[in-house]
Design a protein around this nucleic acid. Structure first.
Lengths: 339, 339
DNA sequence: AAGCATATGTCATACGTATGATGTTGTCAA
DNA sequence: TTGACAACATCATACGTATGACATATGCTT
């Protein structure tokens, strides 16, 4: 390692010397604990000199002394997923407002997870974690996370969670299809096995059951959250002996596959096939016709996540979990079922 | 601030005590400078004890001592843009391989830029910067960046750059359209005024000029990089007195708007209107018909960016800029012009 | 004038690591 | 036997900050 900090080394001691005060005084001023200990006049002087010299507190030293940084880690499965990107954006903005920096951690391979958290927490003295749609591995020592982590769109015993009202959203989506007259509704599910997706499946089945409709195996398919795999699964659904009139997708990414499959088979959307997605970001806007989808306010989700984490980090009390409501946004991909 | 590091405090001193050696020895082992200074046997013992105790070096202390962290900042305009997200993903993976952590900085408001860099550099002791499609403000003291920054998809005097072969890509796109027989080609440009976009415009005009075609003002429109604004601009282009037969878009995001506008005006793609984009990520896959686009290997771009930055950070020599070639990926959005 | 509270500063130290300088052995050649 | 040298380990210190424990000065009360 060649680089050193040798170029930039204006320390509190330098400021102190130039201002004719002690290092302690400078430190007090910059720590904001000067009230009653440093006269306003001196404070002015210190600040002026510091400005002139271009002094910036060294955070490594501060961290070493205080035992905490201002860094939080944001853990998501994949930045490339527009939904997570949007959440991240919201969180990052909110973080900046609180003077936190955000370190990004993607966990495409769930294995890395544990190591990453441990390392981050200890090695980098990370203060807090936002775990977005990511479940900690079972063998992870939870005490590491307690009091410093927030789970978003998932749950874990003893950890505060920011939940989405998945059940409500799914119900709204199914209700919408049913009110249009659909009964032959298929479900394109995510292959990921987390609470958020399981819940969609449960409500899907529950809704059909309440209607007295059978749950047909050939009306459910699973796919990874990317268009190619979704296409395969969608083809499969549309090859059912009794072609469904509507498909409910666990995620907008999956809807992309459905659109492609429908195009292949020359099924018009929404004329011959209705489609509902889950997400409501860029993808929903990009698909034509506009996708009817359960819209998740991703940006606000990220913001709120950070606010809650902030509370967690600054309280000894346990912080209550929160629930964010979802709304169905009706687009042009749903209509009356074909006769 | 309530939280402290009080729970986790296995230090090198603890390890030393348990292993019956001095703190120096532990430090030497963990710094990898033990060859010839610590016997293999002792090394084993230290590592074993450290493992048992769950020791992790405290990075704040190390940073304070060494004057450098293992953190780099990744600066992009907007994570929400799938292209940047993909670059980020590649970079983050490569970073982890080099034991670097990545701090994310979005600069939607260019104002924040300078403050962020200064703060990051000094306050957080950030080691290096990847500036992706972001130009440092003119009044920024460049010496702060020299030797620790890499510009991606842009240039700046005295800074190493990882360039995309925008010119080549644009030429390929225009060539493709021209070979199909198009002459009435419009340009939907980004409103952002950076080198990467200016270059697209230049090549666009140059190609037409070489063909002896006029550059018509009504064949060029500008839009922000988001679908809604792009739609407006696309409408405008398609209302030209002599409707263009093809549109070249500076970015796939803009193509979304073109697709929407074409749909509104019942212009079939590619039958009545050919469209070429720039990017080639999720959006190109989502649009139907598949978008013909200049594909940017975003993931590899991110990886390579990090490799170069790594070189920069570990050399005193200036590092040469690099150029990444682009390829036109032909989809189903381009065809012979309507008669 | 003595006593005391208030206002303003400074001292000294600890945070955990890395490393040049300085021992302490043991081995081998002369 | 002694001096030289390698191999191994430790000592002492510095990095820059924050803060409880002191020190000093000023004004006010009695």
């Amino acid at each position: 390692m060649v680089r050193g900090n040798d170029r930039w080394s204006v320390t509190s001691i330098d400021v102190a010397r130039h201002a004719g005060v002690s290092q302690s005084t400078v430190s007090l001023v910059f720590a904001g604990k000067a009230e009653g200990r440093v006269s306003p006049l001196t404070q002015q002087k210190v600040l002026r000199i510091a400005e002139e010299l271009g002094y910036r507190p060294n955070i490594a030293a501060r961290t070493l002394r205080l035992g905490h940084t201002n860094i939080i880690a944001f853990v998501i499965p994949d930045v490339t997923n527009p939904f997570f990107a949007a959440v991240l954006k919201g969180a990052e903005q909110a973080a900046r407002a609180h003077d936190y920096a955000v370190i990004l951690v993607s966990t495409d391979n769930d294995q890395a997870w544990q190591g990453v958290v441990m390392d981050a927490l200890t090695t980098h003295s990370i203060e807090g974690f936002v775990l977005c749609a990511v479940r900690p591995p079972d063998n992870l020592d939870l005490s590491l996370l307690r009091g410093r982590a927030l789970i978003v769109d998932d749950t874990y015993p003893d950890l505060t969670a920011l939940q989405l009202d998945i059940a409500g959203g799914t119900q709204a989506a199914m209700q919408h299809l049913i009110e249009l007259g659909h009964r032959k509704i298929a479900h394109l599910a995510s292959r990921r096995d987390t609470a958020t997706f399981r819940l969609r499946g449960m409500i899907y089945e529950q809704t059909l059951s309440q209607l007295g409709e059978p749950i047909r195996a050939e009306y459910t398919a699973q796919a990874a959250l990317e268009p190619e795999d979704a296409l395969q699964a969608a083809r499969q659904l549309l090859q059912a002996t009794d072609i469904p009139t509507a498909i409910f997708c666990d995620d907008d990414l999956l809807a992309i596959g459905v659109y492609k499959a429908a195009r292949e088979m020359e099924l018009a959307i929404p004329g011959q096939l209705s489609v509902v997605g889950f997400g409501g970001g860029l993808i929903a806007q990009t698909l034509a016709p506009d996708l009817t989808t359960v819209a998740i306010p991703a940006g606000r989700l990220g913001e709120q996540a950070l606010e809650i984490l902030y509370t967690i980090l600054n309280t000894t009390q346990p912080v209550a979990s929160a629930l964010m409501p979802l709304q169905l946004r009706i687009g042009d991909s749903t209509a009356l079922p074909r006769p």
